[in-house]
Design a protein around this nucleic acid. Structure first.
Lengths: 236, 236
DNA sequence: CGAAATTTTTTTGTATACAAGTTGTATTTT
DNA sequence: AAAATACAACTTGTATACAAAAAAATTTCG
């Protein structure tokens, strides 16, 4: 196998992942094998293997004899998300603080640098991807094969939910993003100090900020996304 | 596509899953594509798709240009398992109690019938598979796409850990299995009553029983499995 | 016209052939 | 005899051709 081929496969995977995370490919979109294999210079066999892999990670849904589809987001999904996220995020960050290796801490700092850069000069997509990368590294740090599948699944929809709800530009939103960035710094510090309790506490804070941000823009009339309205009240 | 072909693919998947759960295929075993495609009357293309899927679910590990391998169990794995299981099991059972549909409750009762039958007349493998099926149904009941990936991953290794530690025959073990069966009945009752708190409490009890059972047989000298010894003390 | 049925077209699933990579063995070299 | 290298056998990865299913378009008949 030529090196090119491997990178083509990797390029396809990367393209699909980022497109899905940023909603360039919206939930429910059908994927065309012929078109994609053409575009990425791959035959359908390896392409379909990438589909299977991404389906396993929660990016895609596969139905027999029908096209692969970007995984859906529904009302139920959002409710389940709010239920699972605080628990899993807390556990992951606690473990990350206990197990992080120096190289991983460096990777986390790099990710945070990229996130800050995205805050200054990037698009909403850039911010979502950089934030996703930051949390992805914390997952790697935790190293717990049993929690990671759910954590990674949560990260996918956290990015997508963020893309839908962080869109409106306002002062309060900018302020929240600054606070998120500060919390990232605090998380790095807690991990570097191997302070599990602090990391768990910061996970809670970080989640609350994220949740508030989402709630802030959950105003039924303003919604044009097919996701329904969560039960959380708290008017803006 | 002929119906046969679909069932062949399903048969392969089922064969691999049960073989891995029961340790007939031990952790680290290399899988031979040529041999398996011969045995199940499938070409390598659909066979490799099954591999990808099972890898996504945590049954297999794939390495490029090397054979697929049954996913490993290590010392680290066991430690991570003990960390993640109580949390996820509790959450799943709580959600199951809140969301279970009548048809699912019937399925759960069926699974419990099969488990009881396996206790009376079945092999260790039968018991492990029936128990696995029972908990799998509770996962379906929870219906939470974010928790299920981790829960299913835990179930795989719970079955495998059970197969290694529940092997020795003793009165105390038989008693524990009876208690497990009683707890299953209680779990069914809690779910039928939609009593989330009771379900969560039962999850804790059930997990403690399972943990005790495992600890009971964790006596370093007796171990011939390449899994190391967990930090949990409590001599038998 | 309009709904149902049939044909045509398109898309998905599988088999097979071939290319590229890996592993084991034998031969050469020191 | 040990190490290194070259070669052969085998295994994995990809492309392509073909079969089966679904979707679309056309025809048929009420």
């Amino acid at each position: 196998m030529k090196d090119e081929a491997k990178s083509r496969k990797g390029a396809l995977q990367e393209h699909l992942k980022t497109s899905i995370l940023t909603l360039r490919l919206q939930p429910g979109t059908d994927l065309d094998e012929a078109h994609l294999s053409d575009e990425f210079g791959l035959s359908r066999t390896p392409l379909r293997e990438v589909f299977r892999q991404l389906a396993g990670e929660g990016y895609l849904d596969l139905r027999t004899n029908r096209s692969a589809r970007v995984s859906e987001m529904s009302y139920t999904t959002l409710r389940d998300f709010f239920l699972a996220a605080p628990m899993v995020y807390g556990a992951i960050l606690r473990l990350a603080a206990g197990n992080a290796r120096p190289a991983q801490i460096d990777a986390l700092k790099d990710a945070q640098q990229a996130f800050k850069a995205a805050l200054r000069t990037g698009s909403a997509e850039d911010r979502a991807l950089a934030n996703n990368r930051f949390h992805d590294v914390t997952g790697e740090m935790s190293g717990n094969v049993y929690l990671l599948p759910s954590f990674n699944r949560l990260l996918i929809d956290h990015a997508r939910i963020g893309m839908t709800f962080y869109r409106p530009q306002s002062d309060e939103m900018s302020e929240n993003l600054s606070r998120a960035s500060e919390q990232h710094d605090a998380i790095i510090a807690a991990i570097e100090a191997r302070d599990e309790a602090a990391a768990a506490k910061l996970a809670e804070d970080h989640w609350n900020l994220s949740r508030d941000q989402i709630e802030m823009f959950v105003m039924p009339d303003a919604l044009d996304v097919p996701m329904g309205v969560p039960l959380l009240s708290k008017p803006a």
